[in-house]
Nucleic acid binder design. Sequence first.
DNA 1: GCGCGCGGCCTTTTT
DNA 2: GGCCGCGCGC
Length: 885
Amino acid sequence: MNEQPEVIARSAEELLGGLNEQQAEAVRYDGPALLIAAGAGSGKTRVLTRRIAWLLSQVGAWPSQILAITFTNKAAAEMKERLTTLIGPVAQRMWVSTFHSACVRILRRDGEKIGLRSGFSIYDTADSQRLVKIICTELNIDVKRYTPRSILAHISDYKNGLIDWRTRLKEHAPQFKPGQRGSKIGGFGDVEELYACVYAEYQYRLATANAVDFDDLIMRTVELLRADPMTAEYYRRKFRYILVDEYQDTNHAQYVLVRELGGVDSGGAREPGARGAGRTGPAWITVVGDSDQSIYAFRGADIRNIQEFEKDFPDARTILLEQNYRSTQTILSAANAVIALNPGRKPKRLWTALGDGSKIIGYAADNAQQEGAWIAGEIARLTAEEGFRYSDIALMYRANAQSRSLEEALINARIPYQLVGGTKFYERKEVKDAMAYLQAIANPSDDVNLRRILNVPKRGLGARAEAVLTAFAAEHRTSVWEALESLESMPDVPTRTAKLLTQFRDLMRALQTFAAGNDGSPSEIVAEVLEKSGLVAELRKSTDPQDMTRVDNLSQLQSTAAEYEQNTPDPTLNGFLETTALVADSDQLPDGDEDTGKVTLMTLHTAKGLEYPVVFLTGMEQGTFPHSRAMENESELEEERRLAYVGITRARQVLYVTRAAVRAQWGQAAEMLPSQFLDDIPENLIEWKRRETGVDSLRGGWRDDGDDEFGGFEGGYSSSSSSYGSRSRWGSASRRASSDRSSYGSYGSSSSRGGYGGGSYGSGHGSRGGSSRGGYSSGSSYGSSYGGSSSGRSGRVTTRRMKKDLLDSLTKAKSAAAAKAAESSRPSQLDVADFHEGDRVSHDQYGLGKVIAVEDKGRNSVITVDFGSDGVKRLLLRVAPIEKL
DNA sequence: GCGCGCGGCCTTTTT
DNA sequence: GGCCGCGCGC
């Protein structure tokens, strides 16, 4: 193999070939700061790779001077691959990586200047949470009130904002001394003090464990560059061209990192007459992004980074890419319409030369199961009749929990699928346990991981034994492992515990020795750990069928290690640990055009950057998408809208939007109203295969205004302005749906009872704000009291457990409940035969109206009445408070 | 110290 | 519906 591979020389024509004017301009732009505002599907990766090739072959940059940063490992791998095609194997020598792995690389090399010893551990979120929890317990913090999760979120915010723990401590808890047991304080004056103390203690523990968390990777790299001018200088001389993809997703720390690495503020001057960025002065910075696709504000991404790029970087230039090469105009028009509602954005309109294509297809299902079943049917049709392959199709949803009903439907229909994301391989308990052994072997100071495995598998070392160790460690300000090493000098250790601890110590020593002797073969270390620790043995002897899978997972872990070993020039245990920490699940990521023979399921977040000929956007309901927690807050709603924009623009040819009128959430049925994003898509772009559900037609009357009993039985689809009636109406109703998800009474039935059908359902009417108890009282009856009757508003039945088959028939049950309730509260005296088109009626609430349609359906007859300014309503005759005039 | 059963809480989204 | 933590009994 060639030691010094050359860059394949590419002519300017080659590099600009096939590009549109704006793309070409971006590729050859000559200057210190460039923002490529690239709309979805506008060919930004192409532009980015061509630009890199341009810098190399036309500007004279060296591969080693390039730092290309992406957000995901997949994007990095893809870019590397494309670059290899474009400029040859030399691409492998460039830094093309995520922020996190670039930082690891820097910290591995120079971290000791800020106190990081080589071989430091990288804590994932679970590790971090464990640590916070340990700290909370020791500091006497009520973890019910302040969950480790939420505390960690605050710590993460600080880090993303580069706020040092010392600063926090100085401001909010100057008396607190991290790392001293005596510093435990019972009551905290305020939450800021609490966060400051935990933050400080957390960093102290990370330091003693020689560990960093995800956010530290960025923040501590910035710290390093600021603390050590020599190091900063080294990287500034090295990286002359920095390119950042998905710039809209960068947080403050990442933004500062780019500035520091690029030497933007260091004041050095570019050598006169130099080509490109030259060898001194600020690096050339190119950022690519789309502010409309900023969907990570929740974890600290700061959209202002991209919005204010021109102000931030001197002599910055912006180039807009608006031509889309991916989707039909119909899809783009929908996307444009949705995103246009976000205020304060810079106008950008995607367009395409590909033509209109087919309409967006809409479907409203009664429940999630039916939604899944219909989608499965469509997939069967698409593949059988329209020539699509399974791998052309993707199902997307807002939250992972939604995948379940879709999966079940696909299984029933025997459609092969692959799930991307969700519970990750490395997050599975058994895998995490095995990894904890490896961590503890590689880095014995790692208290969190050592404590995790102390009694895994069960070896009789419980809380007491752990307390003995941690007390000693705290007293001597050392790690748990060192405490274990000093076991003999520890006072008051019960003989039995001492014996067990010694055994554990011997085990770990043996594993350490083995690891030291086989550092180049992580797979053998994994095998040794699995064997000697007893992890596999414990699972093998279990009778739980799930444990079989767990054994398989562990064996897969070993294979992964072997794979790593083969693909890495210089494999080490630490290298393997790092890969697993940062390159989560790269194996299962969908890969370009490859025909996997499977339909792909994933969240909208995961889908960013991907594209499929056919996309199903599922769960288009208020509260599901937009997510209920994002609906209260305007800026979060804007982010949801961007997420919708991302989802819509994933589709190349056919886009489906589906929703369910009832969805199980947290084991309970909840009524879902159509997503506002459906309203945002121009009506003429959607062809509804089914628009209204059984629940919709009932909705108006008995949830709605609550107090008007069964009166306003609004159909909702009759208004001319919008296919769904007025927005405000849906808006307000939906708020209720999300905050009071059981307003329809859940069909209570304890699991032992026979289920629905015996009439055991309750239904609720005005349950707002009220008590949420009212549990299922006696065996056979149902609480069917509807407005006005004696038990009135409290007639709601709530039972947590609800059989799945009940759920399926929920819609049906509701009509039945309505019927029952109606009978008891307001016996019908009206006969459908008495009503004719043109008749005038009077309604208790809406006043005078004119009948415009009559549907004779026996007991369920409906009349449609125009109430003038109050709108057109569909009224269920037997319950509506109307009078014929 | 361990296992079981109950109850509370939960859900965004991910490097 | 599922996870996690707690309390209880062995």
